[in-house]
C-alpha cells in the first residue's frame, strides 16, 4: 500500500484543490455569485482524499451534501464543478444539479445527495452490479455522523454483509450534524456497529492524517476487491466552516478551544510537512504546487463565469431517456 512519490504529491494536490476550491466557493456565496448555499469540506481534506486515493479510477463513489470534496478527490476537473455551482450550461450536470447534486460519472462519481444517508443504498447497488458482472470494481459510500443514525445505512450494511458486496461504508465523522454534537445523538461508537453485521469496523482517530485514512481505506478496498465483503470505516475529522456558507446561528455550539486545537492539526500543513521531511518534495516544490492549484481554481472560476446559463428548455430535458409529456 505504499504510494509512489508521484501519488503522494497527487494526494497533496487534491487536498489543496479542495481547500482552494471551497475557499473560492465560500467567497462566491458571500458575493452572491452562487445562488443558494454550499457546504464546504474545508478541514476534512485528508479524510476525503485519503479515501478517494485508495480507490481506483474505475471504482464507484457516492456522497452527500458536503459535496465538492468527493468528486475533486476522485479526480474530477474543477471547471465543470465550479460552473455547476453557478448553474451554468458548462456545469458537470448542465446546471440541473447544483452544489448538492454534483456527479461526474467519468470518474466514478455516482452522485452527491441532498438527503442525508440516501446515497448509501446507491453505492451498495453499484457494488451489487460489480459483483454480478464480475468486473472487480469497488464502491465507496461517503456519509456523515448524522447519516450514521439513518436506518438505510443498516439495511445497506446488512445486505452488503449477506451478499459480500465490494463496498466500503465511509463515515465522515466531523462530530456535528449541523449544530448537534454527534455524541448527544449517537449511542456507542459508530465503527463498533460493524460488529453487528459481521464486518470489520475501523476507526481512524486522526482523520487529519491523510496517510492514516489512506491506509485504513486501502485495507478495506483490497478486502472488497478480493471478494471478502464490506467494511465500515469511521474517520474522525472536523469541519472548519459553518455547516453551510452564510449560515449564522445565534448559539455557538462548538467550543472555541476545540476549534483552535483542530486548526493546529491542519491536514494540508501536516501532509506538506511530511512530504518535505521525508524528502518527497522541497518547500519550493510545494509552494509551486500550491500556486498551480490556485491558478487551476482561478481558471475554474473563469470557466464558470464564461459559460452561458442553460436555455430555459433544458429544464425539460433528461427526465427520461425518451420524451414523455412536457419533456424532450
Amino acid at each position: 500500500m505504499s504510494l509512489t512519490n508521484e501519488e503522494l504529491l497527487e494526494m497533496q494536490r487534491r487536498m489543496v484543490r479542495i481547500r482552494r476550491f471551497d475557499e473560492r466557493a465560500s467567497k462566491m456565496v458571500k458575493r452572491g455569485q452562487i445562488p443558494g448555499t454550499v457546504h464546504t469540506s474545508i478541514g476534512q481534506e485528508a479524510q476525503v482524499v485519503g479515501a478517494c486515493m485508495a480507490l481506483g479510477d474505475d471504482d464507484y463513489m457516492s456522497g452527500n451534501h458536503r459535496s465538492h470534496g468527493h468528486p475533486i478527490g476522485k479526480g474530477s476537473p474543477l471547471g465543470p464543478l465550479m460552473a455547476e455551482l453557478v448553474g451554468k450550461s458548462g456545469g458537470v450536470c448542465g446546471g440541473k444539479g447544483g452544489s448538492l447534486h454534483l456527479a461526474d460519472f467519468a470518474v466514478g462519481s455516482l452522485g452527491e445527495s441532498g438527503i442525508v444517508g440516501s446515497s448509501i443504498p446507491i453505492a451498495t447497488g453499484a457494488a451489487l452490479s460489480s459483483k454480478v458482472l464480475g468486473n472487480g470494481k469497488v464502491s465507496l459510500a461517503f456519509f456523515g455522523d448524522g447519516a450514521a443514525n439513518q436506518g438505510c445505512l443498516y439495511e445497506a450494511m446488512n445486505l452488503a454483509g449477506v451478499w459480500q458486496l465490494p463496498v466500503v461504508f465511509l463515515c465522515e465523522n466531523n462530530q456535528y450534524a449541523l449544530s448537534t454534537p454527534a455524541h448527544t445523538v449517537t449511542s456507542g461508537v459508530i465503527a463498533d456497529r460493524a460488529a453487528g453485521f459481521g464486518m470489520p469496523g475501523v476507526r481512524v482517530e486522526d482523520g487529519q492524517d491523510a496517510m492514516a485514512v489512506y491506509d485504513a481505506v486501502s485495507t478495506a478496498v483490497e478486502r472488497a476487491r478480493a471478494g471478502d465483503g464490506p467494511t465500515l470505516v469511521e474517520v474522525v475529522t472536523y469541519r472548519y466552516n459553518e455547516h453551510s456558507e452564510g449560515l449564522r446561528l445565534g448559539t455557538d455550539y462548538r467550543n472555541a478551544d476545540e476549534r483552535t486545537q483542530w486548526l493546529e492539526r491542519d491536514p494540508i500543513v501536516l501532509f506538506r510537512r511530511h512530504l518535505v521531511e521525508t524528502g518527497v518534495a522541497t518547500d519550493e516544490e510545494m509552494d509551486a504546487l500550491e500556486a498551480e492549484v490556485l491558478d487551476e481554481v482561478e481558471q475554474a472560476f473563469q470557466f464558470s463565469q464564461d459559460s452561458p446559463f442553460p436555455d430555459p428548455e433544458v429544464a425539460f430535458r433528461d427526465l427520461y431517456t425518451e420524451p414523455i409529456g412536457v419533456t424532450s
Binding site: L110, A123, T124, G125, C152, E155, L159, V162
Partner: peptide, 19 residues
Amino acid sequence: PISEEVIVGAAIGAAMTGL
C-alpha cells in the same frame, strides 16, 4: 432481507452501473 429501502436503492445503484 425485508429491507425495502435498500432493496430499492441498491436496484437503482445497480441500474446506474450496468445491471
